[in-house]
Write a protein that binds this DNA or RNA. Structure first.
Lengths: 151, 151
DNA sequence: AATAAATGTTTGTCTAAGCAAACTTTATTG
DNA sequence: CAATAAAGTTTGCTTAGACAAACATTTATT
């Protein structure tokens, strides 16, 4: 007579290292956009930028920024020299500029809606990360349109 | 003669347990908003909702959803009965509705801008989480205005 | 009713991103 | 120029949120 044992599991297969696609590895997160925008803005304002300045501006602490700067270097968005400073690469500037364009546009729109873009900075910051090129175009049309036909 | 030893560190102080504010504990993250919106929408569409349906809809896997459903229960946004189902609480519906209002409004706006809200679902999904009440009001004005003065 | 399929859950692991403490390097200043 | 301050970095820890494998429960099928 037999008893059939119901096996609960098969022999463990070799752990498969999850391969990350190039796209994922260099994914531009909101956080990365924030950093790049911030850095670019500070450079425009002060002519240079430091870990501390970024930390102050983003309301983070220096260690956090330091680590992210290193990551941004790895990702090729900036070049850094430990303890000496860092600066955006072309790749980094490209992203910074794209996000700045969106920010400026939203500021203009908010103004036309009668909202102080400074007071509603958080809205703008949040929204700017989620605007595709197509939407950007249409919003530009809208801002132009509202100049002729204000609210 | 003395040598002054420069101590590298003070005796380790007792680890201070980081206390989390009530606000933080119940913070409505984007993810939470997504889940609540999704659940609400599915209930409206199908009359009921399941872990699988949410997983399909949000393009996540069931275990991820299962865990989040548990968290949402803990946070009081829904009531669940393991293996049996779950449903939004008043608190959960409130958030779901707020986010749905924003979604609908943005859909209307996108339509008026000549953008298919389905095609630009990602933009809308991203943006809807970042609209304050004041901005919401103004966008409502804008949509009304555009009906009279289309692009 | 027994088995299979579907659905739901638990556990372990991972990544992004943050903070705090400790440490290092550079800059400032008496 | 030595001591201190300021700036930057490293390390260790935490949380949110996701995936995968294994396990459990419920439902469907034969």
């Amino acid at each position: 007579m037999y008893f059939v044992l119901k096996l609960k599991s098969l022999p463990p297969k070799p752990q498969k290292a999850v391969k990350r696609s190039a796209h994922q590895r260099t994914a531009v997160t909101e956080s990365i956009e924030d950093y790049l925008e911030c850095i670019s803005t500070l450079v425009q304002r002060d002519g240079f930028v430091s870990v501390s300045a970024v930390a102050d501006s983003l309301k983070l602490i220096r260690p956090s920024v330091s680590l992210m700067i290193k990551r941004l270097d790895d990702l090729g968005y900036l070049k850094r020299e430990p303890y000496r400073g860092f600066a955006l690469t072309a790749k980094g500037r490209e992203i910074a500029q794209a996000i700045e364009v969106r920010h400026l546009l939203l500021s203009a729109l908010f103004t036309q809606l009668g909202l102080d873009p400074v007071k509603y900075y958080n809205d703008i910051e949040g929204i700017e990360h989620h605007i595709s090129d197509a939407t950007l175009k249409k919003l530009q049309d809208l801002v132009r349109h509202l100049k002729k036909h204000p609210l």
